[in-house]
Design a protein around this nucleic acid. Sequence first.
DNA 1: AAAAATAATAAACAGTGTTTATTTTGTCAA
DNA 2: TTGACAAAATAAACACTGTTTATTATTTTT
Lengths: 210, 210
Amino acid sequence: MGLAERKEREKNELRELILMKAREIIIREGQNKLSIRKIAAEIEYSPATIYLYFQDKDEILYQMMQKGFELMATSMEDIYHESSPTKRIFLIGKAYIRFGVENQDWYELMFNAVSPMNHIERCKSEWGPGIAIFEYLVSTCSEAISENKLTTLDARILALQLWSTVHGLVCLANTLRLTIVDANCEQGKECDLLDKTLENSMLSLFNYIV
Amino acid sequence: MGLAERKEREKNELRELILMKAREIIIREGQNKLSIRKIAAEIEYSPATIYLYFQDKDEILYQMMQKGFELMATSMEDIYHESSPTKRIFLIGKAYIRFGVENQDWYELMFNAVSPMNHIERCKSEWGPGIAIFEYLVSTCSEAISENKLTTLDARILALQLWSTVHGLVCLANTLRLTIVDANCEQGKECDLLDKTLENSMLSLFNYIV
DNA sequence: AAAAATAATAAACAGTGTTTATTTTGTCAA
DNA sequence: TTGACAAAATAAACACTGTTTATTATTTTT
């Protein structure tokens, strides 16, 4: 008697519909324009209904964050083909920055927003995809370190250095701080400064061996 | 006839009172709890009155940002005594991170918030104190480069590398991303990872000469 | 003292997230 | 098929938010 299953399926379908619409709104109007009431209006349910499927707005944002990680993962797929770990790190950095400036709302959600993290407090150690990306970077750093015989370097610290650099760059760019420091670097468009700084960071981090 | 002056003074006094209360609220309850109505209640005026002294909330946030820069500047005062530019850069980095994690709300306003920047759009090139700090870093980098005879380095790029790294670290720490990646690094308290990464960055950025 | 200018406000508008009590809908046994 | 029960959906309210407008109170000037 597939009744319970059907019920379950229907519940999941509405859950997915809510997330889908939320995604559409974020893409169309930006993250800060997303509201429970707007989702409700678009799926033609009352706002209260959404609370039968999600604990609160934070949980929706948390789910959106997960979707963002999926997006990022697919945008980085072709990098894995690169065999040289050093070059791979460079490509990861470039792709990371690219994703960050081209998907500002997702990026904000994934790496800057605190409200979806409030939700994590409850279901501890659930920032899975985020950790996965970082751990991938760590192991790539390990490979690169042994390839370049830079035994003095700690892979974890190196990974964090890289992450901080690109994260810092993306944040500064997205919040218009680079525009101010360097007028040539306008929001949205490809910015030399970003690439140049990343390149320099790579060079110095690998002790000018690259 | 000091009437116009008195009027002007009174107007400025209320302006300052508004900013003072806003500051108190931010310190007491955090930036996202700051509201026009709360300020109004605390200064015992109606919310509408505030709009006679400030265009909108963004302008208040912008003014708060300026206060934040003053705060940061005073917290960095003793660094100027250091004569070695290389050491000075390191001290700036440490002080920057320290300020960032200890004054999260100010930091958010100064280096991450977009809404006060909306206000900048109107009164272009007004992120003065922010630029000042960056330019100070650039010139310190220049000194350090010539001191260490690293003529291949561009002072501006180097400054941006440094800024990105510390900014990235502060952001990751403040938004709980470091907590997740490294369980030993809890919010608020001094975190080894921050210092270690900064140290490593300094080492690599200066080509292991330091 | 009357007129003009300035300052302050009450009330409304259009939003926000969330909760509670109520109503509608669907399921299942008698 | 009908009545009982459970599940799903909602209307309405609560407590907020930023901002505007028309009105009232105060102060200055004539």
